[in-house]
């Protein structure tokens, strides 16, 4: 479904992605792990067309990501951003229903609001949150609103960029459970970027470890602990010694 072949991306002299290859099957939940600055978010942005790869190809349902009808392509995706990326000037319900208030499948304001409230309930928020502004919400609530926005248009593919960063362990657990439930319930394909190993264990069907601009290990979650891959082992156990250079 998502087929990434030999993707390269550099920013000036900094080569972030150096030939990333990855396949994600329909309905699969892939979690990409790796240290900070290893290009996980850049890879995700390349798939969405927010960054243009220097080389390689990204196929989604057999179609090149940067070709064809852009709106139709993006309509397949939902995304939860690291900081939720809610629009400050809009109330919560308009954030959730943003896509539904515009474009080809535009709904009436009343219908869009009802649907937004339903999605907010789905992520555990009460209806009275709908009329608040993002700045009035806690970090955990903002993540939930971001999650509600990501699923509002029932996308086929959902991206989660560091879904638990900045949250306390209990809220992280709640968000992880919600993501897993929603992905299973919707039958969506999911791609998650995280450093949080509790998220990996809660969300993943498959895991890919990104380092030095390439996938160092990829496999099912069941084989995570027994991979024998030195990069993965060092990352999992948080060791300073190993093939991943730790800057002190």
């Amino acid at each position: 479904m998502i087929d990434i072949k030999g993707v390269h991306k550099s920013f000036g002299a900094h080569h972030v992605l150096q030939g990333v290859n990855m396949k994600i099957a329909k309905g699969e939940s892939m979690v990409i792990i790796g240290g900070s600055g290893t290009g996980k978010s850049v890879l995700l942005k390349c798939i969405l067309g927010l960054e243009t790869p220097d080389a390689g190809s990204i196929l989604v349902y057999g179609q090149e990501a940067d070709q064809g009808d852009r709106d139709a392509f993006l309509a397949r995706f939902g995304m939860l951003f690291q900081g939720a990326a809610l629009f400050d000037s809009l109330p919560v319900w308009q954030n959730v229903a943003f896509r539904l208030l515009r474009g080809a499948g535009k709904l009436s304001k009343t219908d869009a609001r009802d649907l937004a409230v339903e999605k907010l309930r789905r992520v555990g928020l009460r209806a009275d949150v709908a009329d608040k502004f993002p700045a009035e919400l806690s970090g955990g609530m903002q993540k939930r609103v971001g999650l509600a926005r990501a699923i509002a248009a029932d996308p086929e593919i959902i991206f989660f960029d560091e879904p638990t960063t900045g949250l306390d362990p209990i809220m992280s657990g709640v968000i992880n459970e919600l993501i897993r439930e929603i992905v299973v319930e919707m039958g969506a394909t999911a791609m998650t970027i995280t450093h949080d190993m509790s998220s990996v264990r809660a969300i993943a069907d498959k895991v890919a470890m990104l380092h030095d601009g390439a996938v160092q290990w990829s496999g099912p979650i069941a084989k995570l602990e027994t991979s024998g891959n030195p990069y993965l082992d060092q990352f999992l156990h948080g060791r300073a010694e190993g093939p991943i250079e730790a800057v002190r």
């Binding site: 993006l74 995706f77 939902g78 951003f81 990326a85 809610l86 629009f87 400050d88 896509r99 515009r102």
Partner: peptide, 13 residues
């Protein structure tokens, strides 16, 4: 900086 502009693009806007 807060990725709201990227979010707009992902929401087909």
């Amino acid at each position: 900086v807060t990725e709201q502009i990227d979010a707009l693009t992902t929401l087909s806007t």
